[in-house]
Design a protein around this nucleic acid. Structure first.
Lengths: 166, 166
DNA sequence: ATGTAGAACTTGACGGTTCAACAATCATGA
DNA sequence: TCATGATTGTTGAACCGTCAAGTTCTACAT
């Protein structure tokens, strides 16, 4: 496949992937596409929530007062503020979240989990955790799990630190 | 966070995640969200292609005759047939791909990379491979890379084998 | 005071993805 | 010959995310 192996390197200074690197990348890519998609589909069927919506509710649920600033939620859920804003608008319409401007502090907005929202997370959590176990955690060894964690942390910190998106 | 730790386990037979498992899952989740998003954004700027479109073209480019059946491409790129069909329609409109029904064989359709499509991949590949190196391959050790590969293969084969999406 | 910059959100339009329904073709057997 | 079903692809509507632009507020300089 062009771009993923060492063939046809007419260009100079392009370090194509070795076969091992290529295999690792293809396996990771498939993982990154399929695992979230499957978790998302199951959550949708079981609880009528997307994976992203669940993460927003879950992050809020563990906070003191079940409240957080929009931009904090965005950071915690690896999403853009715009995406979060749209999502919270939907969740607000469903009665799962309430928004309020905290006056005197610029344009800051707090999102709070309602009782219904909290009940929704409590309801959805067991099946979702079981899925995460079933599809990932229980499939790998503890050693592999720790490597996965280290890799995730390293790569993400590089993404956050470096020039994001470009 | 509800669903990701051992707190508030009122329910029986729910195995909540241990702190280590939780940390590994959160790191993986962030990785699976951010890495594809960043690669996608960079490819978009550099070559006006989404990551998915690039993968479709790349998969075709390494095939004999630069031709494949729709369902084969879908499998190779971990996408639904519907998603692929829409994408190929767009790529066809751009002149990068041509479709043709192979008569006498059910409803099978072949997609072929045009010369322009091939040129597009050749053009986009170096920068994309550099990104994959820069953001993943060169960030981790060879041992971590091999673990990542094993994990990816195990998890994906579980996803493909088990009941997909539900 | 006024102007300029910056931070924190929101909005609307646009384009991509999903889902369910449909279409086309072959295979099989009554 | 005709029904039934399995494969394989396409389509349209609804929905979601991104991008660029706009809004609302604070801060700080002139």
């Amino acid at each position: 496949m062009i771009g993923y192996d060492a063939a046809m390197s007419g260009e100079e200074q392009v370090r194509w992937l070795t076969p091992d690197e290529r295999a690792a990348w293809l396996a990771s890519a498939a993982l990154m596409v399929k695992l979230p998609a499957t978790l998302d589909a199951r959550l949708q069927r079981a609880a009528d929530l997307s994976l992203f919506e669940y993460m927003v509710l879950a992050v809020l649920s563990e906070q003191e007062g079940r409240t957080m600033q929009m931009s904090e939620i965005a950071a915690a859920s690896s999403a853009s503020l715009s995406r979060l804003s749209h999502a919270v608008k939907r969740l607000e319409k469903l009665g799962l979240i309430a928004r309020s401007r905290c006056a005197g502090r610029g344009r800051r907005t707090n999102a709070t989990l309602t009782e219904a929202g909290y009940a929704k997370v409590v309801d959805a959590a067991p099946a979702h955790v079981a899925d995460v176990r079933d599809l990932l955690i229980d499939v790998i060894t503890p050693e592999e799990r720790e490597v996965l964690r280290r890799v995730g942390e390293k790569v993400v910190s590089r993404l956050d630190g470096g020039c994001p998106g470009g």
